[in-house]
Nucleic acid binder design. Structure first.
Lengths: 132, 132
DNA sequence: AACTTATTTGCAACTTAGTTGCATTTTATG
DNA sequence: CATAAAATGCAACTAAGTTGCAAATAAGTT
């Protein structure tokens, strides 16, 4: 996956922050609960560190049926749309938005843009094959 | 705004469902709390009816810092992206996605698509003018 | 109209995500 | 080593949303 060690931003992280970043790097996208189950620390610690990482611009939150978190790292992990399965609620990361599409979408507002979140909802192949 | 009466779907709605649809038609987009404050019914009633309206495909949920709900009615209110202000958390409805952009975005997945949610985050003019 | 059945509602209790205050532990610094 | 700063755990809390159940409304039948 992405080359975690190349990311300068992680150098100054400590303890839980670093563990979270490491896990998100390995797994791609996780919920606060999943992080807590793996790291076995208090949920307050998880949420405090998630908030801090978001503030430092190292991770971003993906709002779906529940919230997920993923790295916001570098060219190895640029902003990308997500697919949310309406059957199993699983989140799939899609390939990054092209420059053209990014520009096109950004034209829908004149406000100052900070980020563009695209979520495609539908049924994933796995769930579709289970239908009758 | 949209011509509410033209929408066949609303004919069979009753009580709270109808009130909610009417309000969303008038106000555009509202949270569950805002609906409850205006309609003065129990929140269980609000959520049950919101769920039912979503199932009937009459409204859709817009997930932001908190959830909002808007009509999913007809050609007068096609699917459109939203702008979420990261300062005041207000939601602005943007002009509908063009057919071209819809097709372009839909190409990012091969899964069966049900809907496309685009949320642009940033700072709205009102909040920007309050900055120093 | 009277009776029965189905639908809608309010209420209270609950779940789950996320937050906050505070005391304790851990880490950093002189 | 002593002290200050930062990170953690714990418990209590908030806010959104859900659920079971009993009471109230509405709809259907004779």
């Amino acid at each position: 996956m992405y080359n975690f060690n190349m990311c300068e931003k992680f150098k100054n992280l400590k303890n839980t922050e670093y563990d979270i970043a490491l896990l998100l790097n390995k797994k791609g996208i996780l919920s606060a609960n999943e992080l807590q189950e793996i790291l076995k620390v208090d949920k307050a610690t998880i949420y405090r560190n998630l908030k801090s990482l978001i503030k430092k611009n190292i991770i971003r939150k993906v709002s779906a049926k529940k919230s997920f978190y993923e790295l916001n790292c570098n060219i190895h992990n640029p902003i990308h749309p997500h697919f949310e399965c309406i059957k199993c609620n699983k989140i799939y990361c899609l390939k990054p938005l092209s420059a053209e599409d990014t520009i096109n979408i950004s034209r829908y507002t004149n406000f100052e843009i900070h980020s563009i979140d695209i979520k495609i909802k539908g049924t994933c192949d796995e769930c579709k094959s289970m239908d009758n």
